[in-house]
């Protein structure tokens, strides 16, 4: 397998180059398995889950330019996975120290999927496809393969109606119904989790 420099890796991740991501998975994951096993936390989280979750966070952070390059990419990935372990452990144990793991630096807290996002992720999983589609359109998202980007802040309902090939009034009504369900569920979960 071809070797990459750090900048090639970062560029590859930003481009969504499968070979680069495959390289990261093959070369950066052995330490993680060892760490999870050494910490003896496999009853809370499996090494494979940490690896995948960590990889998702790594890719998201690189694409959002949150990775500043103050450490090597492998160290950064290791720290992300370490933090995921700690977070998962805390979820079950409600304590904040785990062996020699300390709470990660502020730099690493950026990638934390906080409680609010976790709520939305849960809701998204249970939403109907037609709702997801219209909310994506209204929030101005364009999803092209593996890439999600925001094109406009709030897409107009005429454009949405045209894209979905429905009436303008129907588009407004459908979005209203979907966003209402989303917000109701979000506020319910937020109240449960944070109050």
């Amino acid at each position: 397998m071809r070797k990459y420099t750090e900048s090639e890796l970062i560029d590859g991740v930003k481009r969504g180059d499968d070979q680069v991501i495959l390289f990261l998975m093959k070369n950066y994951t052995n330490n993680i398995k060892k760490m999870v096993n050494d910490l003896n936390i496999t009853r809370y989280i499996q090494p494979e889950d940490v690896i995948q979750e960590g990889m998702v966070e790594l890719i998201m952070n690189i694409r959002d330019n949150k990775f500043k390059g103050t450490s090597s990419l492998s160290t950064y990935y290791f720290a992300i996975c370490r933090f995921i372990c700690l977070k998962q452990y805390n979820k079950f144990k409600n304590i904040y120290q785990l062996g020699d793991i300390e709470i990660a630096d502020n730099d690493f807290r950026d990638f934390e999927i906080d409680g609010k996002l976790a709520c939305i992720l849960e809701i998204l999983k249970s939403m109907k496809k037609e709702c997801i589609e219209i909310i994506d359109l209204r929030f101005g998202l364009s999803i092209n393969g593996d890439k999600v980007k925001r094109e406009v802040e709030n897409r107009g309902f005429e454009e949405i109606a045209k894209a979905l090939n429905i009436e303008y009034a129907n588009a407004r009504q459908r979005f209203g119904r979907c966003i209402q369900a989303l917000l109701a569920e979000y506020q319910k979960r937020k109240a449960f989790n944070f109050n």
Binding site: G16, M55, I59, L124, D146, K147, V148
Partner: peptide, 14 residues
């Protein structure tokens, strides 16, 4: 929503 959609898309990619 943008973050959640990005998360799931990247997760699928991974």
């Amino acid at each position: 929503w943008l973050k959640a959609r990005t998360y799931y898309t990247v997760k699928e990619e991974v």
